[in-house]
Amino acid sequence: MFVEDVNHFHTLAGLPTPAASLYRVTGRHPARSSRYHNVNLSQGLGDELRCVFRAGRDVWGYMCLWRAADAQPFSLGEEHLLAALSTPIGETFRRSALLRPNPVIGVPDGPGLLVFDRTGALESLNEPAEAWLRRLPLTRLSHDDPGATPIPAELRSVVNKARAIAARRDTGVARARLRVGGRWVVIHGFALREAGSEGGRTALVIESAKAAEMAPLIVRTYQLGRREQQVIRLIAAGLTTAEIAARLSLSTHTIRGYLKRIFEKVEVSTRGELTAKIFADHYVETMNPDFATDL
């Protein structure tokens, strides 16, 4: 269950050092942490070491390590070691997003819908959701009912995020992206409320990612700046260098400079290769005229 706590991953993402232990953050008093009481102790765990994997300013992954309750807490040296691995691992994750997706095989035709009760247990689901679950790695926690359907960790995190937002303990959007069989999938979470009640149920929708939804990730993956994104959008629309310069009120020399940097980042040498690599290589089956404008 989501609890308000310290040492959140989103907090680490904005700090100079991307790794921190619970003992150090709480001044060697982990009892100040509600997560320590509600999660760690019940699992026989003590200190935890969290790290986010960054490439530039973007976070591409995260990790949490635990020590047994009777073990020594993580040392500062271990924190530094994990922090030193943040950039190379983050860069590896970033580059993995550039892998060309596999052909779609066995992907459900429609979105999957899952409904969870107040305790976070799966209450109902439709047929496409069953098909999606068969393609996702399942996770069974020690406190789960033995007869309950195992739920992927990614789905659990979106459920918890949606519940936290509904309870005003968090902000933002309950959503996650993940790769399934080489394809990108999007998970959306929503808190449900019946008329005249406090609610408590949570709904998840899982579906193949549309091209427009993937555009921001592709932009981040290639580390394209705002002007570079504008130039790519206009290239995709078929404009010449002079036309792009006129549209952006810049000189043709400046546009050529942007093109040179874009080609270097995307590792292409022509406009045709650029368009194919950014658009066709990542979701050719979902390309539509709106994709370029959503960059």
Rank of each mutant, 00 (worst) to 15 (best):
R220M: 11
L239F: 14
L141V: 03
P216Y: 09
T202I: 11
N38P: 00
L85A: 15
I218Q: 06
L76P: 00
F116W: 11
G189P: 03
D144Q: 03
E207F: 08
E194D: 15
L41Q: 14
T275H: 05
V219W: 10
Y23M: 12
D170R: 02
A242N: 11
E243R: 11
A212V: 15
I187E: 03
H282C: 06
T11F: 10
D117C: 06
S251L: 07
M214C: 11
L234M: 15
P146I: 03
H253L: 08
T11I: 12
R183G: 09
D47V: 03
M287N: 11
P88H: 02
A215S: 13
P111F: 12
P108N: 06
T270D: 12
G196D: 13
L133A: 12
L12G: 04
T252S: 14
S33Y: 10
P73R: 02
M214P: 02
F190V: 07
G112H: 01
F74R: 02
V284P: 04
R57F: 05
I165T: 02
Q72I: 02
I244A: 08
E207W: 02
A203S: 12
L178Y: 04
I206Y: 03
P137R: 02
A246L: 14
V219F: 08
G200Q: 09
V25K: 06
S269P: 01
W60V: 01
D70Y: 02
R50S: 14
E123A: 14
S249R: 05
R50Q: 07
V59Y: 03
D170Y: 05
V284Q: 14
L22R: 03
V284S: 14
G189R: 03
Y258W: 11
H253T: 10
R175I: 05
R168N: 09
R256Q: 14
R226D: 14
A245N: 04
L12P: 00
T92R: 03
I151S: 05
G120F: 11
A276W: 10
G199I: 11
G14M: 08
T119F: 13
E127P: 04
T241H: 11
V180M: 06
K265R: 15
V219T: 04
R54K: 05
S251D: 14
F263E: 05
T171F: 10
A245R: 03
C51W: 01
I235G: 07
E228K: 00
R226N: 10
N288A: 15
W66P: 00
R179W: 06
T149F: 09
L81E: 04
G44Y: 10
A97H: 13
G172M: 04
A129L: 04
E243F: 05
A215N: 09
